[in-house]
Design a protein around this nucleic acid. Structure first.
Lengths: 378, 378
DNA sequence: TTGAAAGCGCTAACAG
DNA sequence: CTGTTAGCGCTTTCAA
């Protein structure tokens, strides 16, 4: 263990009159300790870190030596407080266990790390109330920028975020992009468009009775939006097709997908739908597995498609059609956008609605394959 | 006396409605602003937050009113610096995308949140070098405690961690427990024991030719340890059984599992092993899917088992035998242990090796089921 | 090239 | 119950 030098007031200067106050520090090594050991003052050590070129080689050597024996860890609070620069960016995602957001965070983290920023991460557990708490909490660290997920927030969270923008802190909404009425910069895509594309894909394959299985997660607004648009698109397709949105039970998503499939079966165990679209791939995979267990042919008797492009969709025989969202790219693009906004100082209300549409694509696999050309419906 | 403040290029014209004037630092509202608006001094506002009982009701009312119109966000850097208490705990996990750690983080987060702590999260990407960087980075925030994953760290990281312990910051190693030679408090379990249990399970089922498929992730030391113990246990079981450890290719784990299975097939497409144990359930599921695709009966022709208890293992027909690690509990227990150490101030070297064994269990499912009683081997 | 002085925004101690 | 004073550890002028 490195010996921690005594911090006792070893005063070479005059003792302050009537100085009997209790010391407050926590036993850590400070810049001052290192400086004393190196025979310089703390500002020189500080420079050694920030502008190494500006300290004499000999001095640098002595400082390096002092550092080697002192396990010095710079106190970031102090640095941030003094400089006003935090080099920290905060992000709030609904869930860290959801691999979708994990990859976004990965992209964000990589993009920021390259620029020397640290990431303060929080999760809201898909609760707007907790999101507000987290917004408040992370803003307290004066991050240089904040990324949140989606465009639905509590009034309180919105107020905090707007105050932050007004104070010059860029705020970015990830995963969702809907320039109309946007209050913040957005990096993502339009989920309604995805919902429509899913419907169109199934309609084009000739299916007539379509179902969208929504997630059991109440606050997954993006999934709901896809479902809503899906339904609207089906309804707009004419009288010969029917659309329906049902909800998967909360809990394990594989089980939820299975349950949704079962719910769609008639008394004879046959699907009352031609095709089912799911809010996410776990649900879709669950349904696929249940279909397989029951001998329901996919896509012969029932077409299935999901959202998310989870690894498993490539693994199940024939593959499961899905929408590949730019999970990683959203994070990466958010980082880029943040860096740009931070450097230009453009964080004003004027940029609300700006941002980037990050492209997604529909990946067609076996679960919605059309044998031959099944003929155009509707 | 008063140095002329740097002239702000832009004229401080009128502040946005609701919020009062922008100040020089971040342009953020400070305690002082609120205090002025409430007609008190900042310390009173500070007390209003920390010890509400100690401010007069009338004063409290005025402060509350001032707050309502000021979007005040406390500056945590300043608070921490002044109080020395951070109410922040840091954790470093190998990967946020790995659901195993995601759940641990969830448990940790929940346990800490209840006690009013915030979580600073970092991921090392399974790299000891990056882990050291992250240790250094998070220690700069003066967390009240730090949790790292596993007991393998770079010398530099170890030095930083030991200095932190010496300075009174509890450090906990999660997921691994090996009291011999431990330098820090550990909350987890012994992976060698798991490896032995996996071997025993397969041996007891009468299998003779056993294979452990290690992960393609080089720095997943715990997986390697399970493999090593697995092999040792098989070798110790006598001359009539054989054991082997092979590595899965890096990349997608489902594909890795498939590849590992293929690698074990002879020219006629028949397994050269009786049973395969995998470093994780993704690999095991991949192998299972490949076996199914090739018409290899599981467990008839080949028994499979994994580690991790991922949701999918319950879904594939018959289920896949796995080891259920206490993913969530490790996080929860880490939180409890941290809180205890922080309150007792016991963070000295004397507690190294202390900690908790968190129990795991082997979940037997179809993929290793013994039809009837296949007869005792070795 | 190095140092001295003056805070950053907040809280601990100690009066009133 | 409220205010005053003195820092927390670092970075910013500015001076030497």
């Amino acid at each position: 263990m490195t010996p921690v030098p005594p911090i006792s007031a070893q005063s070479d200067d005059e003792s302050p009159p009537g100085a009997t106050r209790a010391r407050r520090g926590h036993g850590r090594v400070t810049l001052e300790d290192v400086a004393r050991a190196a025979g310089v003052t703390k500002i020189t050590v500080s420079r050694y870190f920030r502008e190494p070129g500006k300290v004499a080689p000999e001095t640098a050597r002595r400082i390096a030596h002092a550092l080697a024996t002192h396990a010095y860890v710079p106190n970031k609070q102090a640095g941030m407080l003094a400089s006003g620069r935090s080099r920290v960016v905060a992000a709030i995602v609904p869930s860290l266990s959801n691999s979708v957001f994990a990859e976004t965070v990965q992209g964000l983290s990589e993009g920021l790390q390259a620029a020397g920023y640290e990431l303060l991460l929080a999760s809201s557990g898909y609760s707007m109330e907790r999101e507000e708490e987290q917004v408040r909490a992370v803003l307290g660290w004066s991050p240089n920028a904040l990324a949140v997920t989606g465009r639905h927030h509590s009034a309180g969270a919105r107020a905090l975020m707007q105050a932050a923008v007004a104070a010059g802190t860029p705020i970015i909404e990830m995963w969702d992009r809907q320039p109309r009425g946007a209050r913040f910069v957005q990096v993502g895509f339009d989920h309604a468009e995805v919902g429509r594309a899913m419907a169109r894909h199934l309609l084009d394959a000739g299916h007539r009775r379509l179902v969208y299985v929504d997630t059991g997660v109440a606050a997954d607004f993006r999934a709901h939006e896809r479902g809503k648009a899906f339904l609207a698109a089906v309804r707009a397709a004419g009288r010969r097709v029917s659309g329906q949105v049902i909800g998967a039970p909360p809990g394990d998503a594989f089980d939820g997908g299975r349950a949704a499939l079962v719910q769609m079966l008639d008394e004879r165990g046959r699907p009352r739908a031609d095709a089912m679209a799911f809010a996410n791939d776990h649900l879709a995979c669950g349904a696929w597995l249940e279909a397989q267990a029951r001998g329901i042919a996919v896509p012969g008797a029932l077409a299935l498609m999901g959202f998310g492009d989870f690894a498993l969709t490539r693994q199940l025989a024939g593959g499961i059609t899905t929408v590949q969202p730019p999970r990683y790219e959203i994070g990466r693009e958010t980082a880029t956008t943040m860096l740009r906004l931070m450097s230009t100082g453009l964080a004003e209300g004027s940029v609300a609605g700006l941002g980037r549409d990050v492209p997604w694509r529909l990946v067609e696999r076996g679960s919605t394959a059309v044998p031959g050309a099944r003929g155009g419906g509707g």
